[in-house]
Structure formats: C-alpha cells, structure tokens
Design a protein around this nucleic acid. Structure first.
Lengths: 228, 228
DNA sequence: GTCTATATTATGATAGAC
DNA sequence: GTCTATCATAATATAGAC
C-alpha cells in the first residue's frame, strides 16, 4: 500500500519547490494583512499579534517567516519601493519626450501612492522612528529618483528645459512638488482617488511651471519666415 | 498662634488664582514633556506612562489634568496650530506687498515647523488615526490658511498676480508647495535647520514661480517714455 | 511549521485611601 | 492633587513539545 506518488513532506530532495512556493505564498499573505492593519490602525499601529489573529494562527508561528516586527517593516518597505519603481518605469516607457516622461512618471507615482497609502506613508514619511530600511529595500527608491533625473536630463537635451533643469536642484524641486501633492492628498483627503480632490490636480500645474523655472534657450531652427 | 497670613489651600475664596496658576504651569509642563516624548519615540510613541515617569509622578495623577491620552493630543494640536498661526501672522505683518506677505508667512511657517517637528507632524501628517482634532483646536489652522489667502488676494489687487491668483486653486497650489518642502525636509533631513539642506531652499524657487502660474495683466501706468 | 506556555514589559484607565 | 492597588489588555519574543 505504499503510494507511488512522491511524499512531499518527507524527503527534502523531492519537490522542494512546492514547499518553497507554499512558504512564499504565506509570506505574501502576511504582508497583505500587514498592509490592511496599517491602513486601519496607522503605519505605527502594525502589530504581529494582530496579523496572526487575522491570519488565524498563533503569534509565535509568524516568527518562522519573519524574525521580528522590524523585518516585516523592512519587507513592506522593499515591496513598496519596488512596486513604485515598476509603476513609474512602465509609465515612463510610453513617453515621447523627456518632460513627458517626467510627467507620466510622476503621475504614475501619484496613482500608485494614493492606491497604496499605507505603504507610501511608510516610505515617504518614515513615521516609525525605530525602523530604518535596509540598503536592499532602499535601492529601488534610489533607482526611481534616477529615472526622473534621466527624464529631466533628456528634457534639457531636447531643449524643453534650460541647462539647469538637469541639476540636482531641479531634481529636489520636482521631488518637493510630488511630495507636497501626495502628502496633502493623503493627510486631508483620505477618500479621494488619484486625479480627484483638491490636491492631485495641482501636480500638472506644478510640472507645467518647470520650463518657467528653467527656461530653455531660444531655438534657432523653427523660426517662422526664415530660410529653407 | 493663628497665622495672620491667608491659608492658601483651605478656603476656595482666598487666592484661587494662585492654585489656578500652579495648575496651568503643570499643564504646560506636561505638554512640554509630551513634545519631548513624541520627538524621541515618534508622534505615535506618546504614552501617558512615559510622561508621568519623566515628570516624576504616578500615571493616575495625570488624569487630574487631562481626561485621556486623546485629550493630550488635542491640547498639543491646539498648541501647535495656535503657535504656528502666531508665527505666520507676525511675519506677514512686516511685509510690503501681497506676494511678499505670502513669502514671509510661508518662510515663518517653514521655520516654525522645522523647529517643532513633532508638533508639526501631528498636524500636517495626522499619523494617529484614532485622533481627530476638536473644532476648537483646528480653528487656528483655518485662520492661517485665510491669512495666506488674503496675501494672494492682495497680490492680485496689486497686479503682482493675475486674477486667478486669488482662487482656491492657487491657495491649494501654494499649500502643496510648502507641504512638499516641509515633508521632504522632515522625513529626509531630520538634522538640518530651516534654510539649510537640500529642500528648504526650494520654497523660494517655488514661490517665485507663482507669477508664471498666474501671469499678471500688463501694466498701463508705469510705461517708460510715456507722459508726465 | 504549528502549537502551548511563558517571560517580560508595557499600556490606558478607574477606585478609593489620604 | 497625590498616592497605591488594581483591572483589563496588549505587545514582542523565546523555549520546547508535537
């Protein structure tokens, strides 16, 4: 009566991927629930006990997946920065100019943030003083900044912005623009979707001011009534 | 041997102000310590037990001054909005034009915020979901918005901005500007004073863009080589 | 990988003596 | 207005059985 089919749980050499996959699913489930808890109780209100309660297990079992509460925060932080990077990168790929890429990237950033408020607050506001993200979890956020910087540099090269538009100062300026819009929207209009409310429309207005902040040099070629 | 000097603690009709003053001092002390705790442990990290510990009393004694933790939050919130309003109002009084008043007011707002990060985070970010400020504590913050609005309207009247500069949209735009600068500074440069770092200088840059966002109508009077 | 049991510590809040 | 004692609850984390 020995079963011909492999016994998944006995031998480590047989179908280890199945166990690993199941484990990964549990990890994702834990993080999903953690996001729910943060959404309801605030980013600081996350507790492993509450996660265990909702998952239907006992708190000690969680320690088989994460060694501490801070490790959960770090996984959430990494998840947030990676998802945001993906969203921004995809949006920028469809652009047809540097400034357009910046616009599309930041719009995608806004949409993702408003759709993922708790994760966004964890990474934008850093409201948990005892938590510092690991270098690995922080990296995607640096890459996203680079993407925006590239867009600005492209805009300068295309004559959409003056030379200072590619500077670090311009990058900080743009980051304060998106941060201001998102902070106001998250703090004061928790029910509004992206694009609605009083604040998210301000992003387009702000970005339209970039050429005024960094005026492009006058073009020579497309002058009306010139030679040709 | 009956003392001729009044016995302060026995009769309620004798020098009640002395007791009231002493009480008020204790309240201020409690709030000062609460700010310290929030600064160290995060806005959400405020606990009455910790405040009592630092004050050298037992936790139940605090309930003679505040009925609950949320009442302490509300007092802190009211203190924050009132102090900020005072700072902004004083700075704007020295202005010589509408746009200048807005600039000075927001600069004062920035300085106060960076000098009072914990209180500012409590009111800007609302990181404690279970706390909602009372109408009374919230009022000064509305008045501050009105002050900025008045400045914008003055700027329109003086021809510094176009007519739309007095609109609600312009007010929201300005509020996203200051919020973006302050959020970036608080979250990413916790040690930098106001005016230093990468972000606070961006405020002036942003405000200088207002005339580009709301272009003033061309002047008629001050035309060079005209009559007079 | 799940559980029970436990250690340790903390919290907000109330009752009631002095 | 201070205290002690207490209630009720919660948290992170570890040890060890199964």
């Amino acid at each position: 009566m020995s079963p011909p089919h492999p016994i998944a749980t006995s031998s480590p050499s047989e179908r280890p991927d199945r166990r690993a996959r199941r484990r990964q699913e549990t990890i994702e489930e834990i993080l999903d629930i953690a996001v729910d808890v943060m959404t309801e109780e605030g980013v600081n209100g996350l507790s492993l006990s509450e996660v265990a309660r909702r998952l239907g297990i006992q708190p000690p079992s969680l320690y088989k997946y994460f060694p501490s509460l801070m490790a959960v925060y770090d996984a959430l932080y990494g998840r947030a920065t990676q998802a945001l990077l993906d969203a921004v990168r995809e949006a920028m790929a469809a652009a047809n100019s540097g400034l357009d890429a910046v616009r599309r990237g930041l719009d995608a950033c806004g949409r993702w943030t408003i759709d993922n408020r708790a994760l966004a607050q964890l990474s934008m506001w850093r409201p948990v003083p005892s938590f510092t993200p690991s270098a690995e979890s922080f990296r995607p956020s640096e890459q996203m900044v680079e993407l925006i910087h590239d867009g600005l540099v492209d805009a300068v090269a295309a004559g959409e912005l003056g030379p200072e538009g590619g500077s670090d100062e311009a990058l900080y300026l743009v980051s304060t623009m998106i941060t201001g819009v998102l902070t106001q929207a998250m703090a004061n209009e928790p029910e509004e979707p992206w694009g609605g409310g009083r604040f998210s429309p301000a992003l387009a207005t702000l970005l339209d001011l970039l050429p005024a902040a960094y005026p492009p040099p006058p073009r020579r070629a497309p002058r009306r009534r010139s030679a040709t």
